[in-house]
Design a binder for these strands. Structure first.
Lengths: 178, 178
DNA sequence: GAGCGCATGTAAAGGGTTACATGATTCT
DNA sequence: AGAATCATGTAACCCTTTACATGCGCTC
């Protein structure tokens, strides 16, 4: 049920088409909530059916620009204030880490170093994004800045963890070769 | 495709039934990769069909204990060594943070403080788990320790972030009431 | 007019949750 | 005898991805 609310949230900032929203997911929300165009178009249809959004204007190439309705705005706010949040951190690299003892130590170490490099690179990208513009111009931009900060800290923590994990010496009992 | 490999990884440690695996997901892997029993039983069926696991023994109440086959073990290792990792951090609280500007500042602040409390509590739980036993006894346990460390650092970072975010003053332009 | 990017959609398949259902064993 | 827990499974539904498909508008 998060996609629906994310769409409402994006439309609360400004009216947009399915195509616009798809790109915003790619560049802005994709790290924490990926969504491809078929799902977005489908969900826009449902939201329009439910009266939470409405067609604002139609442009060339069948382009339909949606805006959020007062009911839609109320619904995002309800969602945001709601306190039954799903705190699951679905993260494949961490799942893998539970099973790294199955690899020969060197291979596990190489894997962790590659992960560390990846996370540090992501942190660098976000640091650059944070410095790139003035996020105090609008409330929406300020929220983006706060969200970027979370990514920055998260990737920093993950990078540090992976680098540390790569240094942990293999346990006494070696993995038996298959 | 991660569930299948997680099951193989768990069975690589020791043979187990669907019921056992369901509980291990709940207590061990649930934070990063939730899985309910219907999915687990279904996937066990597929894995058995593919010859990656086999029935080790049958017990009372139709209990079937599976063990990983050499092919299955090779498959987890292939997965672990494979470097096309999905780095998506699917995390609802971060998605929400992009839209917090839609709430009145006090409400947003209260929400962030509740999140901070939650993450700090989780970090505390994991700190206790890390101190609870000797993780050097087996390679598998050592990997669990490393995985716990990632959670510790992650929740620490998220807790710090949420506490900081709660202190960010609202932007100049106030949110227009609907 | 050829090619590219814009823009929208449908269909099929896979992954995951919820609800329903059943029966065996153990404990009180 | 009744309740709780063990243990497995099916069916329906929702969420998400991948593949397929189409046509418009702009630029060279």
């Amino acid at each position: 049920m998060s996609l629906r609310h994310a769409l409402l949230g994006l439309l609360a900032e400004e009216p947009a088409s399915g195509y616009d929203l798809t790109r915003r997911f790619e560049e802005l929300l994709g790290r924490v909530w990926p969504a491809k165009h078929p799902q977005i178009y489908q969900e826009l249809g449902r939201l329009a059916g439910a009266g939470l959004i409405a067609v604002d204007s139609e442009g060339p190439r069948r382009r339909k620009v949606y805006r959020v309705t007062p009911e839609g705005l109320a619904e995002v706010r309800r969602w945001l204030a709601d306190d039954d949040v799903d705190h699951t951190v679905r993260l494949e690299p961490l799942l893998r880490s539970f099973f790294l003892w199955l690899l020969p130590p060197e291979q596990a170490r190489a894997h962790l170093l590659a992960e560390a490099a990846f996370f540090e690179e992501q942190a660098r990208v976000l640091r650059a994004a944070a410095a790139a513009k003035d996020y105090d111009a609008t409330p929406a931009l300020q929220s983006v800045r706060v969200a970027i900060e979370s990514g920055l800290r998260l990737y920093g923590a993950l990078g540090g963890w992976a680098a540390w994990a790569a240094t942990v010496p293999p346990a006494a009992k070696p993995v038996r070769d298959m």
